[in-house]
Nucleic acid binder design. Sequence first.
DNA 1: TTACTACTATACTCATCGGTATGGCAACTA
DNA 2: TAGTTGCCATACCGATGAGTATAGTAGTAA
Lengths: 210, 210
Amino acid sequence: MATKERESSSWEVPRLTPGARAALDAAGRLFYERGITAVAVESVAEAAGVTKKTVYDRFKSKSALVCAYLSERDSRYRGWVESWIAEHPETPPVLAVFDALDAWMTARGPKGCAFVHAHAQLLDTPEHPAHRVINGQKQWLHDTFRDLAHDAGVRSADALAAELLCLHEGACVMHSTTDITDAVTRARRAAHVLLQDALATGGRSAPGRK
Amino acid sequence: MATKERESSSWEVPRLTPGARAALDAAGRLFYERGITAVAVESVAEAAGVTKKTVYDRFKSKSALVCAYLSERDSRYRGWVESWIAEHPETPPVLAVFDALDAWMTARGPKGCAFVHAHAQLLDTPEHPAHRVINGQKQWLHDTFRDLAHDAGVRSADALAAELLCLHEGACVMHSTTDITDAVTRARRAAHVLLQDALATGGRSAPGRK
DNA sequence: TTACTACTATACTCATCGGTATGGCAACTA
DNA sequence: TAGTTGCCATACCGATGAGTATAGTAGTAA
């Protein structure tokens, strides 16, 4: 359940050869730090220590490479959040998501959300397959918040999920566009208040499953 | 106070000639809809009904045009929010900001925040002067929230401001990356809860200034 | 009349970049 | 031994785009 099989699309990469792995790693760094459209495939190849030909032999196109990059990042973040929740059973899961985000930001650079950035960088090509990956990431986050809220006993879990997602996304954005460094901490505190409010006013529904 | 004089920078445009006005209008549409890096100066000129030469005669460079675009949008949004607050004295100002955002989104297309998008699109050039405009816009929003919260009697106005900014930014992001259409409404409700909580637990400080 | 301003029109330079072509080499496998 | 796979190296094509150059026109102000 943690690693749900994603439908195989045109850009899907079955198994990664060493060259493909190196290219995808380099793409992960460069696309995130400098932006997708600003980084040439040539640069990715150079940083990976392979030739441009190899990149195109492993990935059909730059679009496919971009999708692989975002898809892998998506998987990583999902795994990160899910294992954080599992490893911190004493923390209310809804809040643990924010702790996971905080730790993720600390571990890697606080440069903002790769998916939000990708969306902006690919604004001119709405048909770009990466948009499906981007939407999928946000949808997963929303559904996760909704399920966790529901399990916590919140009746209007769907509404709360949207509010929590606001906080999550907003905290990421603030890390990239403001000097505020404790945005995630603030978002977590706000989430705590919203959760308490939802439990107090909306009332508890069923006891949390499992 | 509504239209505070901004310091004149290298990209500042004193008075706009008809050609410059047309170019800036076209840039405003195209940069926002398709993205800054994806739109050529040539395209802006064509859409404006002027020649590329005219654009470069009025604006030193594409960077200057981008700054003028963002700066003008910044001014417009500030004015929009400030007059919305003034025209709705019955609404708590902190919440009126979200109403203003909602109305702004409804009036124009809900395509997300131009500044967040610009930041992502200009990731590779940290020295780009537009980053100052972007940071300025977010700083203004934060300071506005802080002042309004303080006026409402919130003691920890600075902390609340960061949380409200999270909600504001998050709601914008959700409009561009998810199918959730009532993000601003949800953010407003969350802001209401946070405000009540801040007033109840943090306690009121001084009575709101005039 | 002169000079400046705002503009049109077109052509050009230079750089970047997505993607392809060609050709070759080493390892593994049928 | 033959074929396939994964890779290297290099060159190339076509498109796009920032910015410049040149030359000319209409209005306006000294």
